[in-house]
């Protein structure tokens, strides 16, 4: 049996997400903390929608009831050197 990967950054499998939902995790924010989805280099750009769909299916939710986790900057990776050198102060 090969793995079905849901989160390619943190190597989280379909199996693991299903098991977590069965164990009672019913919120993307909780699944994120438990499994690490959305916390890798792509920052959830591939896994969040898939995990939301699995959650809806396994828990019998309507997808509209699912809340996405909080989004914070940076939306894309920025080298720290870029921020360190930038003259950001204003006024």
């Amino acid at each position: 049996m090969g793995k079905v990967i849901v989160c390619f950054c943190e190597d989280v499998t379909l199996e693991e997400v299903r098991r977590a939902v069965k164990e009672g995790y019913r919120d993307l924010e909780h699944l994120k903390r438990l499994l690490g989805i959305g916390t890798g280099p792509c920052q959830g750009k591939q896994c969040l929608v898939t995990v939301a769909k699995i959650l809806a299916e396994e828990a019998g939710f309507d997808p509209s009831e699912i809340r996405l986790p909080t989004f914070r900057p940076p939306a894309r990776p920025v080298p720290l050197g870029v921020l360190a050198h930038a003259e950001l102060e204003e006024e």
């Binding site: 049996m1 793995k3 849901v6 390619f8 591939q46 896994c47 898939t50």
Partner: peptide, 10 residues
């Protein structure tokens, strides 16, 4: 883009 779900999809 939405990823494909199948074994060894990576």
């Amino acid at each position: 883009e939405e990823p494909g779900l199948f074994e060894n999809n990576d």
